[in-house]
């Protein structure tokens, strides 16, 4: 899929997205390292106890393998195949909805979708501090799981398209980006 994308025309990063780890609001676990996340999603850690929570089984929620988020999270965080027990839901909203209603659930997805669930702080490894996926932390590269959102075009934009692209990248357009829950690229 990635090969496919790079073969195409023009790629314009237009927003920054923090992939957030969702948890139920009552969940006492505050922070997880990338390794812990990987262990959780490959089912090497199956109990909340092992990451500093109460004794309870963790339910995994994720996206369908047709999703970009699935691939991104797999390649950059899990770095192996997901455990079979990971429930793959057809949309990020479905993941959020599932975690919202599951005290022992953990899910991932774009920051824009996280309504009614807790963000988990993420740290690179045990020596680093954990950060929330806030605009500031993402701009400073402190939050570990971020990705760009792109616009794709056949050719370099001209005319009205160029105007639109310029607008989208202007501070005005980036305000809209921030308004819907993503983070500005500049």
């Amino acid at each position: 899929m990635q090969k496919l994308i790079t073969l195409l025309g023009v790629e314009i990063p237009c927003a920054n997205d923090g992939i957030t780890v969702y948890m139920h609001e009552s969940n006492p676990v505050k922070e997880l390292s990338l390794k812990q996340l990987s262990d959780i999603y490959t089912a090497r850690i199956t109990n909340r106890k092992e990451v500093g929570g109460p004794d309870a089984k963790i339910t995994l929620y994720g996206r369908e393998n047709s999703s970009g988020t699935y691939v991104f999270f797999k390649e950059n965080v899990v770095k192996a195949d997901y455990a079979a027990s990971c429930q793959t839901l057809p949309g990020t909203a479905a993941v959020v909805n599932a975690v919202k209603k599951d005290k022992f659930g953990i899910g991932y997805g774009g920051a824009a979708y996280a309504e009614g669930v807790k963000h988990c702080m993420v740290k690179r490894d045990d020596n680093n501090t954990a950060y929330h996926p806030t605009e500031e932390n993402i701009a400073k590269n402190l939050y570990s799981i971020t990705r760009y959102l792109y616009m794709y075009m056949r050719n370099r934009p001209t005319g009205d398209v160029k105007k639109f692209v310029d607008w989208a990248l202007s501070s005005e357009g980036q305000k809209v980006v921030a308004g819907v829950g993503y983070f500005p690229v500049r």
């Binding site: 839901l89 479905a94 309504e115």
Partner: peptide, 13 residues
Amino acid sequence: IYIMSTQSTNVDE
């Protein structure tokens, strides 16, 4: 219905 219940930005709202 399918996409709204699984892919909208805020399911509850």
